[in-house]
Amino acid sequence: MTLIEVEKHEVEEPKSEPVRVRGLPFFPHFLLREVVVMCLIAGSLILLASYYPASLLKPADPFDTPTPIYPEWYFLYVFGFLKFWTWDIGPIPAKIIGVTMPMILWYGLLILVPFIDRNPSSDIRRRKLAVALGIIALIGVLYFTYYGIVHGE
């Protein structure tokens, strides 16, 4: 039998002065607000579900294409951009650009946001460029969503 000696430090913690932090304790203040919001959301979901139940159309039929068909609303901007972009760039066909731009470049750009924006200030007045680009991106996504709705297949 092997005995392992484990040194046990009785850490003498110096009586630390309580640190003053601006804010309210997690329990009960923060949790109370969370519970109120949770009740509101859970209630709204049940209301929505009872008034507008999830739909179930006719069974899937690969030989009967319905018109118009749309993807889910959160993919409409991808779909809209694909419909919007009809120009070939050099040897790259329009369709490849239409698919690559929103799915690879857009998500790539999103991931890189904190590494592109090196401005340390989080004051909205001192980051006019970032805010302007953000608003342009938002309007773009909304516009292509609209475009996708109008040009459904």
Binding site: S55, L56, L57, K58, P59, A60, D61, P62, D64, T65, P66, I69, Y70, P71, E72, Y74, F75, V78, F79, L82, K95, I96, V99, T100, M103, I104, E153
Partner: peptide, 29 residues
Amino acid sequence: FGFSGYLLPWDQLSFWATKIGTGIAGSMP
């Protein structure tokens, strides 16, 4: 999650929405 769940009811909407979705993903270079 939303995309994969959409197909499961196997109705006209889910089938054809998935058709578009897989079509778009499939045409990536």
